[in-house]
Computed example of a mutant assay.
Amino acid sequence: MGVITFALVSEAKPWILALGAKPDPTQGRFRYFRTQEHILAVTGVGKLAAALALGEISHKIPKEERKYHRIWNLGIAGTTSPNKSLGDFFWINRITDDSTKKEYFPERIESFSLKAEAHLTTFDRPVSFSKARNSKPLPNFRELSESESESVDLVDMEASGFFEAASLYFDLEQIQVGKIISDHLEGTFCTENKVIEYMERTLEPLLSDFLKPFAWEKEETVSNPEKTNWRNIGESLHFTESMLVELEKTILYFKLRHPNSEIPLPEFPTEEKKLEKRIAKEIFQIWLGRLLV
């Protein structure tokens, strides 16, 4: 069982045909195609749309069945690297949101048929790079500077929203992001036929992996007693429920990045007094900052 989200219909089309998916009769805000076991979603462009779609999808799957699903985001991406060729596929091992600077770390616990991995940055606008084009700066495009291009590998407009929302409803080991190189940031858009062609190139190996049943015994990155301990600390500091959810996710990311390190403690108030919302928020932000180092 599984879910795949795509930004574009052209990205989804080869998968819809391969799986024999039909339009979901209970369409919501987004376009859905279903088989008996799988959901394919066309969300439209942008991280907000990708995030909202995950919330809607979660209500289509009974809570007790969610743990059996793969949750994938597939599609095209641009790159600053001249060493990456059009049509190359990469699993994403780190996602950076350009506007918030948050980082997300998909957990790769399986061996898939396609092995290459890359870092992806999600932008709020289409991206171009002056060295890759021969024209003047383009309207509505985010122009990368020379220094920015050095820290950017692949670029898209959905992955950070998809991953953050997916992690609210599904476990990290269920969630993967895969991207196919469609351009080198020349400031042009890939044609529909080209997108379909690129997606078809990787369809066979990806489909084989997507249809595999889960075959691992789940190993908790953070044990339930640990989760309870950190939640109790957060509650003692008067964190809101949304802050507690964000704290748990951030601790998981910390453990993935630093598996042998102790989780840093927050800075507790020095005086015995009732915590105001402002103080609790300050403690929360400082603690998250230490966990994201």
Rank of each mutant, 00 (worst) to 15 (best):
S208C: 06
P213V: 01
S135H: 15
V195C: 12
T250G: 06
V155P: 01
L19E: 07
A50P: 02
L8H: 15
E107I: 06
S113P: 01
I57F: 11
T202A: 07
A118W: 00
T100F: 03
L19R: 03
N134T: 14
H119N: 12
S10W: 05
Y198H: 10
T188W: 07
N229L: 15
I109A: 11
I16M: 07
Y169V: 01
A165W: 06
E64N: 10
K63T: 13
V45Q: 14
E117Q: 02
V42W: 04
E226Y: 10
D209R: 01
K22T: 10
N93G: 08
K22P: 09
A166P: 07
E143Y: 08
I251M: 05
F33D: 04
N232G: 04
Y198G: 03
Q285L: 12
Y68C: 12
S130I: 15
L144H: 06
W287K: 09
Y169W: 07
T221S: 12
F268C: 05
K22Q: 11
E220V: 04
I279A: 13
D153S: 09
K281P: 03
V195S: 15
Q36M: 13
I76E: 00
D88A: 06
K47D: 11
K218C: 09
R278H: 03
N93K: 08
G87L: 02
W15M: 01
I181C: 10
S85I: 11
A12M: 05
R29I: 10
F112L: 01
N83Y: 11
E262G: 05
I4R: 00
K212V: 02
L237T: 08
Y253F: 12
T228I: 15
M243K: 09
E56L: 11
F162L: 00
T240N: 03
L40Y: 02
E220N: 07
R70K: 05
F214A: 04
E262I: 08
S208A: 11
T122W: 03
K63E: 14
N232Q: 09
L288H: 09
K227H: 12
L86Q: 00
P23W: 06
G2V: 01
I61Q: 09
E150K: 15
Y253V: 05
Y104G: 01
E226A: 09
E37K: 14
G28F: 12
F123I: 02
L265E: 14
F105V: 08
S128M: 12
N193E: 14
Q174G: 08
E219Q: 14
K212M: 04
T43G: 05
I279N: 12
D98F: 15
V222M: 13
L256A: 14
Q36K: 15
H38N: 12
P137L: 11
A165D: 07
A280G: 10
R257V: 06
S151W: 09
S58R: 08
T270R: 14
A215M: 08
D124T: 08
I251P: 05
S145D: 11
R66N: 04
P205H: 00
L247H: 05
S130P: 15
F89P: 02
